[in-house]
Design a protein around this nucleic acid. Structure first.
Length: 427
RNA sequence: GGAGAGGUGCCGGAGUGGUCGAACGGGGCGGUCUCGAAAACCGUUGAGCGCGCAAGCGUUCCGAGGGUUCGAAUCCCUCUCUCUCCGCCA
């Protein structure tokens, strides 16, 4: 959501930013609505001023026993009544119309974000590690998992349909181990506070982070008008909605390990094999709430926190800056971390770290009080730290051995009960 | 699920339908006093929107949304949340 006053002052910059997103100029329409609304508000307020004054005089007149004088005023106010009532309805309509227009517009990218139409135009930032060498043809994660009998898509389909999986034994344990490692690093070393939030939320929360109203078809909705979160970003970011935080509380850093649910409405036919794209997956999410001054530095910090997990696991990865065509709805700038999957012979997204400026804060009405006592909107950031399902995939493919077993990375040893490999004859 | 009680400012807590953005207390902030501090005393302390360079003026907001009324924090309806008791339950 944009600051309408900023659009008033910078209509060209606003349109230019939208143009980079491939959208047409909108400031004309927005400002027309804004003008109509302000015009209307002024007339309405004048009427309200007159009504309030007259109403007070009625009270005084009655108190002093001047019933005739009171009656004159009563008649005057009665005339204003319908005008004010209609006026209030109209004001709400104009406000809603303006908001409907603004709420569907994506955030503006930073200048430094590269222009582009698709992920092909993302800019490589840096690469860490090297591709592991195999003296055999590395398998894809689902081949490994199914051969081990520890990853079962068929049974999952019986329970829930396509795009679900059942993990068993050490496979299930490794998913838990990965989450545990991530949470431990983020809470003990990176300054994040662990949170266990609702994963079923209302429409306001989803609106706050920008999934609604535009991306309803990507979400799962319950029968009582709640929604399964597509990411813990929703729950964690909305923790500060409708509040005014003391500046001393910022930056506020929270993390949560939750399941995430996505309808994958537009992804029919994509990544149908394996665990890459599921309706349900688990993720450790990082969210930071900051002042406007802190947010850019916080993005770099958050990226570093996410990268740290991959380094601990010894996984080869690269970081890209998403171009204007690939960046998410609420983001001003996004880093994707892509991990190397030898079985797939390609890099795949495993984390996405975004700075949203005050875009979500305006939708949530999340503010803070600065040193001078001024109230202003916070900035919000979110990032995966990491997507646990995809991390599991990466470990499987990178740590596989010629005999079809998988070596447990050293960093996971404390969480795996001492086993060094798994997937052999005994599971 | 049943029964009841409530949602007022940073917190506690008043508020016969009229001059209430709201008593009073606490907290915070500023000041007086003091060598300094405490105590005491004085002052100050909500958010949104509109107009304005600003000072400021106006307007809206007492859980949310409707309604009654010339006028609603106060009356009515719906919703929502919290608390207590009972039932059920991981």
């Amino acid at each position: 959501m944009f600051d309408i006053r900023w659009i008033r002052d910078n209509p060209d910059a606003f349109d230019a930013g939208l143009a980079r997103r491939g959208l047409g100029a909108t400031s004309g329409e927005v400002l027309k609505l804004d003008h109509a609304r302000r015009d209307h508000v002024q007339k309405l307020q004048e009427a309200q001023t007159r009504r309030n004054a007259a109403s007070k005089d009625i009270g005084k007149a009655k108190a002093s026993g001047d019933d005739a004088g009171a009656q004159v005023l009563i008649d005057e106010v009665a005339e204003l009544k319908s005008f004010i009532q209609n006026g209030e309805t109209e004001e709400r309509r104009l406000t809603d119309e303006l908001e409907a227009c603004l709420s569907a517009l994506p955030n503006l990218p930073y200048d430094e974000v590269p222009d582009g139409a698709s992920e092909d135009d993302n800019a490589l930032q840096h690469t860490v590690g090297d591709k592991p060498q195999f003296d055999f043809a590395p398998k894809q994660h689902f081949e490994l998992g199914e051969d081990m009998g520890l990853m079962d898509f068929e049974t999952a389909a019986k329970l829930a349909g396509s795009r679900f999986v059942v993990l068993t034994g050490p496979m299930a344990r490794m998913e838990r181990a990965l989450a545990q490692l991530m949470l431990d690093v983020h809470t003990q070393e990176n300054g994040y506070t662990e949170v266990s939030p609702p994963i079923l939320v209302n429409s306001d929360a989803l609106y706050g982070t920008g999934q609604l109203p535009k991306f309803e078809e990507d979400q799962f909705k319950t029968v009582d008008d709640r929604w399964l979160i597509p990411t813990a970003e929703v729950s964690l970011t909305n923790l500060v909605r409708e509040s005014i935080l003391p500046e001393a509380d910022l930056p506020k850093r929270v993390t949560a390990f939750t399941p995430c649910f996505r309808a994958e409405a537009g992804a029919a036919g994509r990544d149908t094999r394996g665990m890459i794209r599921q309706h349900q997956f688990s993720k450790v999410e990082l969210v930071s709430i900051t002042t406007p001054e802190q947010s850019d530095g916080e993005l770099e910090r958050m990226l570093g926190c996410a990268e740290e997990i991959l380094k601990r696991l010894g996984l080869h990865y690269r970081v890209v800056v998403l171009c204007t065509g690939d960046i998410g709805f609420g983001a001003r700038k996004t880093y994707d971390i892509e991990v190397w999957l030898p079985g797939q012979d390609m890099f795949r997204e495993i984390s996405s770290c975004s700075v949203c400026g005050d875009f979500q804060a305006r939708r949530m009405n999340a503010r803070y009080r600065d040193g001078e006592g001024n109230v202003q909107h916070v900035h919000t950031l979110n990032g995966s730290g990491l997507a646990v399902g995809r991390t599991l995939i990466a470990v499987l493919e990178n740590y596989q051995q010629a005999d079809g077993t998988v070596k447990v990375p050293d960093a996971l040893a404390p969480y795996m009960g001492g086993i060094e490999t798994f997937g052999g004859a005994n599971g």
